[in-house]
Every structure is written in structure tokens, then in C-alpha cells.
Design a protein around this nucleic acid. Sequence first.
DNA 1: CGAGGAGTTGAAGCAGGTCAAGCGCTGTGG
DNA 2: CCACAGCGCTTGACCTGCTTCAACTCCTCG
Lengths: 223, 223
Amino acid sequence: MSEEEIDFLEGLQNNTVEVQAGVDFVVEGDDRKTTFILIDGWASRYTTLSDGRRQILSFALPGDILGLHINFNAQAHYSATAMNTLKLAVVDPRRILEINQKFPILASGLSWCTAREFAILGDQAVRLGRLPAKARLAHLFLELWHRLELIRENNGKWLALPMKQSDLADTLGLSLVHTNRCIGDLRKSGLITVAKDHIKLEDLDALIRLSDFDPERLAEFSI
Amino acid sequence: MSEEEIDFLEGLQNNTVEVQAGVDFVVEGDDRKTTFILIDGWASRYTTLSDGRRQILSFALPGDILGLHINFNAQAHYSATAMNTLKLAVVDPRRILEINQKFPILASGLSWCTAREFAILGDQAVRLGRLPAKARLAHLFLELWHRLELIRENNGKWLALPMKQSDLADTLGLSLVHTNRCIGDLRKSGLITVAKDHIKLEDLDALIRLSDFDPERLAEFSI
DNA sequence: CGAGGAGTTGAAGCAGGTCAAGCGCTGTGG
DNA sequence: CCACAGCGCTTGACCTGCTTCAACTCCTCG
């Protein structure tokens, strides 16, 4: 990267804002176009059905970008909510276009982010379509654990989970009750230990076998 | 678009190839990097679990691009198969990088494609996570029907479906048997008519209500 | 100390899976 | 030209994973 590029990249993050847990900072149908870089905290991206049920599509972790392609949508296709206190860089999406036009190396970085998001959303579809409930949980835990590892925010076998069980249910396409029972089963069989807002992955191999998780798919996206 | 851009765009499609129905032209784990522009025919993108079960992630229709971000993966994250006879333009993915560096207007077009793919994959996740079986079918039919309309390959209320019921099952995260029964139910309730490789959407409003489909989300991506 | 939110547990019902068999094409080879 | 094989579709019977409804506990916060 040239000095100019580094400057530009840092300039993007000048305008930061703090968002409290539980606040929706993007709302489906919104026509104000903003791109966010998640500096700190976790966010979730979701859509709502007409009867009020939710489907969480993905989680954004520190370093992730939200609304990279918002330039090409008249309005947001999803909502985004803060799972804990966030630090967000607020970016005018026109600067994303500017990157693509003026800074080829940064533009490659954005494409890399896009490829990563695609891989994650594809894995989410596999979870929802083809895994039974317990495997969905294990698969998601492993994904988040590996993603944290990639950004060096991991903590041994412990996995931070700043979310309610109902959020997990809405991510995995399950009912709250069944999600709760499956977590209990995983705990009873010794695969995980549960603590407040954290779980410990006691037996990675067993979780991988249970969920058909492929660590390689994410490993590609190490920095 | 400048003349140079139009020339470049046409040049991309110089090297075309025909693929027979049923042939996998991208295989998961493959490290040969190629980008394809689908000129004619339908393709599906899928992953395989270790026990052999499949999850189809999305369908590619004429005009769609496959492997737009393959530059950033060591190997393909999915397989792609021809559902009927395809005409494919074979593109060196380095030319995609070239577009991003030299042709800002074309690059915007690529981002637009990416935004569209994201929206479609997100809808797929909602189907899989939150819709019951019959609604999944209706929702997918409506998506394909609207996508065909956008590329002007639609034919009234008829929808071409060059796929087996087992492909639908693998798309919608259902068993073949249940897929079959649900199609029968939709037929019996008069919402669709079934013919060889085609169905007719008899009552669009009822299908939309049943599946919570939002036509607006795709309409944005009209050309 | 009471209210409300998150988690937990029980009981009952149903959507969807699995197993199994049969049907009706189409293509192929004797 | 017929026989048979194979594939895609259909149907029946049974089973189970998951949902729903409902109640209760525990914790936190006002």
C-alpha cells in the first residue's frame, strides 16, 4: 500500500460513532445510504417477515464492513442491530466508489471482504438447509470461534457470545425452546461449557465431526 | 459507457464454450481459477456435505456471472453444474481485476451484480430458516419467475424449471418425498399447474401471500 | 419487594423425514 | 419390435425432530 492509500484508509475511520446494545442502526427499507466499518463490538444483520418473525443472516465482528454495496440498492435490504456496545466508523458510500476508481489495491481489499462475506453467507445457507439443530449450533459456534481467531480476538477455547438464546434461534431457524434444549444437550454431553455470555468449546474435534464444519474454508481468509 | 469499455466487455465473451446438462464445470476444492459468464441456460451452485448430501445455494440464469470473486479464494468454495445445455463465456479472472482497475463504469456494473447476488442469497437464507415447506417452494418459484422477467426471458405465467424434484429438494433443504407432496398440494389447491419442465403460476397474489415474497426486493435490480 | 426479561422444563401435536413399493416413461440391446 | 433396465415421479405407512403452549425459576433492576 502506498502512503496515500494508508492515509485514505485511515481517513475513512475518522468519523466514528458509538451505538448502544440493542439499537438498530440500519433498518430494512431505509433509503439513507451509509456504509459502516465495525471497529469494535458485534452486530447482527437480519430481515423481518410480515408476521414479525426474524431471520438473522449473519454476524458482523470487528473489522467487518456493513453496507459495502449499498450504492446499488435504493434501500437497505436488511436491518442491522448492535449486540453489545459498538464503535462504528460512518462512511459515505460514495467513498467506496472512490476507492474502486482511485485505489486499486484498496479495491482488491474490498473484493476480498466481499468474497469472505459470500463464503460466510453460503455456510449459513448450508446450516439452515442441511444440518439438524444441534449441528447448526455447533457449526455456528465453530464459525464464530474461527472468525475471532482470524482477527486475534479469540481467547483459548472460550467463545464470547454477546447474544440471547432467542438470537441464536433466529439465526439458526429454530424455535427458542428447541434451541435451549439443544444447548443443554451439548452441555450434558460435555462438548461445551456454558457461562454468562460465553461458552467454552471443550472438544473441537467432536464439534467439527458433529457439524461437518470445514475449518479450511475460513482459514483462507486469514490476514 | 465509452467505446473502449463496450469493446472490452464484448471481448470478455469471445471465448465461449458449450456445457452439456448435468456436467459439473466447477468442482468444490478446485484450484483452477476461472470466471464464467452465463450466456445461455441455467446453472446451479452447490456444496456437498461429507455424507454426500447436497445444498444448492443459488441458481445462475443467463447474464449471471459465476466466480466473480474467485481471485480471492485459493480454491472454489462450491461446485457448479449445468441444469440444461449451457453457453458459457470463459473469462480469466485477472480480467476482472483489470476491470476494477481500468474501467470504473464496468466495475460499478460488477458491484451491482454482487449486490444482486447478495440479495438473492439472503432471500435463500430466509426461505431455509423461516418458511415452511410449501412457502419455500412458492417463494423460490416467485424468485425465479421475477428474475426471468428482469432478463426478459419470461413467458406469461409460465415458469421454466429445467430441474428434477430432487434439485428442488436440495435447494429448499427438504426431502425429495416431502417436496413432491408439497408440489402436489400446491397443484391441488390450484395455485400452480405442472407440466414437463415447466409450471404455471396460476395465482400470483396467493403465492405471494403464502410465501411472504417481496417482489420489490428484486425489482430494484431491473436493467 | 415486585415486575419483567432470560432461561428452563414438561406435555402434546404436527411438519417433515425415512423406508418401501409401485408407476410410467425413455432409451437400449437382443 | 419387444423386453427389460433405469430414472424420475408418486403414494402409503410409520416415525421423530421440532414447534407450540404453558408454567415455573432465577436474576436484575427500579
